[in-house]
Structure formats: C-alpha cells, structure tokens
Lab assay of single mutants.
Amino acid sequence: QTQEFDNEEEARKAEKELRKENRRVTVTQENGRWRVTWD
C-alpha cells in the first residue's frame, strides 16, 4: 500500500505508526513529494 505526503514530517509520522504495527515500511522522496509504502 502507498500513501503520499507533502512533507517529510507527515511521512515520518505515518512511518512511525506503521512500524508500531510491525509492518515493513519504505519512505521515498520523489518530485518533492514523500511516499510511504508498506506491506
């Protein structure tokens, strides 16, 4: 699953929550947008 964010702060917040659920999370930056991908 993927979700896009406008800034790193929001993306990192989402990453932190997903990691609490023991998910594999990848955060990438593309064209000024932050993308959080998880399984």
Rank of each mutant, 00 (worst) to 15 (best):
T37H: 04
R19Q: 09
N22Q: 09
R35I: 15
E17R: 11
T28N: 07
K20D: 11
E21I: 08
R24P: 10
N31L: 05
D6W: 08
A11G: 01
V25M: 02
E4W: 15
E30N: 07
E8P: 04
T2F: 15
W38F: 06
E30P: 02
L18Y: 07
V36M: 02
V36N: 00
D6P: 07
E15Q: 11
R35K: 12
V25R: 00
W38D: 03
E9P: 11
R23Y: 15
N22D: 05
K20S: 08
F5N: 01
Q3A: 14
A14P: 00
K13V: 07
D39A: 10
W34H: 01
K16F: 13
T37A: 04
R24V: 15
R23N: 15
R12Q: 06
N7W: 04
Q29E: 14
A14R: 14
V36A: 02
W34A: 00
R12G: 02
Q3R: 13
T37C: 05
K20G: 14
R23G: 12
Q29S: 10
L18M: 10
Q29D: 07
K13Q: 09
R33A: 09
R24F: 15
D39H: 09
E30T: 10
K20Q: 13
E30S: 08
N31R: 04
V25E: 00
K13F: 12
N7S: 14
W34E: 00
E10D: 14
D6S: 10
V25K: 01
K13S: 09
K13G: 06
T26D: 05
R23P: 12
D6H: 07
N7P: 00
T28L: 09
T2L: 06
T28A: 08
N31F: 08
E30K: 10
E9T: 10
N7C: 13
R33K: 15
A14L: 15
G32W: 02
E4T: 12
K16I: 11
T28H: 04
N7F: 09
V27L: 05
A11F: 02
W38R: 02
K13T: 11
N31S: 08
K13D: 12
Q3K: 14
R33W: 06
G32K: 04
D39N: 11
D39E: 15
R35D: 02
G32Y: 03
R12H: 06
R33Q: 09
F5Y: 13
N7R: 05
K16V: 13
G32A: 02
R35S: 09
T26I: 14
Q29M: 13
R35E: 04
W38I: 06
V36S: 00
Q1N: 14
T28I: 11
E15M: 06
T37F: 09
N22A: 08
E17T: 08
R23L: 15
E9M: 12
G32M: 05
R35C: 04
V27A: 02
R19L: 13
E9C: 09
T2Y: 14
V25H: 01
W34F: 06
V36F: 01
E15W: 07
R12T: 04
T28R: 07
R19K: 13
V25A: 04
R24Y: 15
N22Y: 15
G32D: 08
N31G: 15
Q3F: 15
